[in-house]
């Protein structure tokens, strides 16, 4: 089942001599439960692609369909609500809310909908993340790996159609990186989440179903590594 469709995405920064084509006619699709990895050198356009897919940034041309909905056709407020219900974000620097404990951080997208969170689901995620006995800890009391696990929990709590991870292991040691990758694979396999991850580390693409390379704004598929 097709979850994500990217059609002819193009994005240009600057003008004149400073003009940079960050994305050139990028098109691809992803199915439900697929784990995709995007590789490329710094400044190749990886993050721009991810931000456009996540509705954080706009493309100059092209369209992004998520679960059949055109992201760029939505109004600002509608897109925000759609994003929090359908897209999970995982950032390199975690971006946890310092004033909320582990449990509250995970529940945060649900709290934004003013919904009472399903406690069983929260417990399940805490269990999967191995953070059950840290649920009342504040981000400042956690290690980097633990913080990234909380961020993964937050990305998964709403059962999003798509999880976008921007260098999720960039700030972590090797053991924590391995833990995070296992969790993302688990999310893809166990919860049938579609995951698209940006990474510099080619070794991490070993877990991905499909690997894309962005070079000078152009996207090419290098082929799947594992299924």
């Amino acid at each position: 089942m097709e979850i994500l469709r990217v059609e002819n995405l193009s994005k240009v920064y600057g003008a004149g001599e400073a003009r940079v084509e960050a994305l050139k006619q990028v098109s691809f699709t992803m199915e439900r439960g697929e784990f995709g990895a995007v590789v490329g050198v710094s400044g190749s356009g990886k993050s721009t692609l991810l931000n456009c897919i996540g509705g954080l940034d706009f493309a100059d041309q092209g369209k992004v369909f998520l679960s059949g909905r055109d992201l760029f056709a939505m109004g600002e407020n509608e897109r925000t609500v759609f994003r929090r219900q359908n897209i999970g974000f995982i950032f390199q620097s975690f971006h946890l809310i310092q004033e909320l404990d582990v449990e509250q951080n995970i529940m945060f997208p649900l709290l934004l909908d003013y919904k009472k969170p399903d406690q069983e689901r929260v417990d399940e995620i805490l269990e999967v993340l191995g953070l059950k006995n840290r649920r009342k800890h504040l981000p400042g009391q956690l290690s980097g790996g633990q913080q990234q696990r909380v961020a993964i929990g937050r990305a998964l709590i709403t059962h999003p159609a798509l999880v976008l991870a921007d260098e999720p292991t960039g700030n972590l040691d090797s053991q924590s990186s391995q833990d995070v990758m296992e969790l993302l694979c688990k999310a893809s396999r166990h919860y049938q989440q579609t995951v698209l991850m940006i990474t510099h580390n080619m070794n991490l693409t070993a877990s991905a179903d499909r690997v894309f390379q962005v070079s000078d704004g152009k996207l090419s598929e290098l082929g799947g590594v594992c299924k």
């Binding site: 996540g54 954080l56 600002e76 407020n77 925000t80 609500v81 994003r83 929090r84 219900q85 974000f89 950032f91 971006h95 809310i97 310092q98 945060f108 997208p109 934004l112 937050r154």
Partner: peptide
């Protein structure tokens, strides 16, 4: 910066 992250996660401007 924190607000930016909150917006990314799905917090609306009104919120």
């Amino acid at each position: 910066r924190e607000y930016g992250a909150m917006r990314a996660i799905g917090m609306s401007v009104g919120q």
